[in-house]
Simulated assay, not measured.
Amino acid sequence: MNKIWNIYLSGEIHSDWRERIAAGIKEAELPVSLSAPVTVHADSDDCGVAIFGAEDNKYWHDHKGAMLNAVRTGTLLREADIAIIRFGEKYKQWNAAFDAGYCAALGTPYITLHPEEHDHALKEVDAAASAMARTPEQVVQALGYIINGTLPR
C-alpha cells in the first residue's frame, strides 16, 4: 500500500508523548505524516492578539486566539485519517475532549491516550474511540497493525 496516513496528535502539550510517537513511527518505518495543534502554549494563547491587535478584556484576548486555533484544528482533523487524543496527568485538556467529539461527529477514528486514573472521567470519550492506549508505544503498535496488519515483534 502506498498510502501516506495523516495522523493528528491532539491534547496535552507538557510532556514528550508526541516525540515518542514520532520516534516510534520512524523506527517502525510507517508511512505516516503527523500534524498537531500549535504546541507552544504562549503562541497558541496569544496568536489572535499578535495578529489582530491587543485586547483589554481577557475574554476577547482568548476568543481571538481560539478562533484562529479552531481553523487550524478543524482543518487538520478533517484531513486526518486517525487522531490520537492525549489526556495528560497534570492539566485538564478541555480542547482534547472537544477534538474527540469533533472526530466522533466527523466519523474520524480516534485513539485515546491517557492514564488509568482518567478512565471514569473519560468513559464516554473512550466509548466512542476506536481504541484506548496507555502509552505512546502502544499507539505506535496500534498504528503498525492498522497500517500494515502486523503485530508487535
Score class of each variant (00 low, 15 high):
Leu76His: 10
Gln138Pro: 02
Arg86Thr: 02
Ala23Lys: 01
Thr150Ile: 03
Ala36Thr: 11
Ala96Ile: 00
Leu106Ser: 08
Met132Lys: 02
His120Cys: 04
Cys47Thr: 08
Glu117Asn: 11
Ala54Val: 06
Val125Met: 10
Asp81Ala: 12
Leu122Gln: 05
Ala97Trp: 08
His63Asp: 06
Lys3His: 09
Ala133Gln: 01
Tyr91Pro: 03
Ile21Gly: 14
Ile4Trp: 07
Ala131Ser: 05
Asp62His: 08
Ser10Thr: 03
Glu29Cys: 15
Asp119His: 09
Leu122Tyr: 06
Met67Asn: 04
Ser44Ile: 01
His61Asn: 03
Ala128Leu: 15
Glu124Ile: 04
Asp119Val: 04
Ile25Met: 12
Gly53Lys: 06
Trp60Asn: 04
Thr75Lys: 05
Arg153Leu: 04
Trp60Arg: 02
Arg72Ile: 01
Lys58Glu: 07
Glu55Leu: 05
Asn69Thr: 06
Glu79Asn: 14
Ala104Leu: 13
Ala97His: 10
Ala127Asp: 14
Arg78Val: 03
Glu79Gln: 14
Asn69Val: 02
Leu113Thr: 02
Ala129Ser: 10
Arg18Glu: 15
Trp5Ser: 09
Asp119Tyr: 07
Thr112Phe: 13
Ala128Pro: 03
Ile21His: 01
Arg72Gln: 11
Ile21Lys: 00
Ala66Cys: 12
Ser130Arg: 00
Pro37Cys: 07
Gly11Met: 06
Ala129Lys: 00
Arg20Tyr: 12
Gly11Val: 00
Asp62Ile: 03
Lys26Asn: 11
Leu113Ile: 03
Ala28Tyr: 07
Tyr110Cys: 14
Thr39Leu: 14
Asn69Asp: 08
Ile111Trp: 03
Ala129Thr: 01
Thr135Gln: 03
Cys47Gln: 12
Ile84Gln: 06
Val139Tyr: 01
Ile13Gly: 15
Val32Gln: 01
Ala50Arg: 10
Leu30Asp: 13
Gly107Pro: 09
Val71Gln: 10
Glu29Lys: 10
Lys90Leu: 12
Ala80Ile: 01
Met67Thr: 08
Asn148Glu: 10
Ser44Ala: 14
Ala121Val: 11
Glu117Met: 11
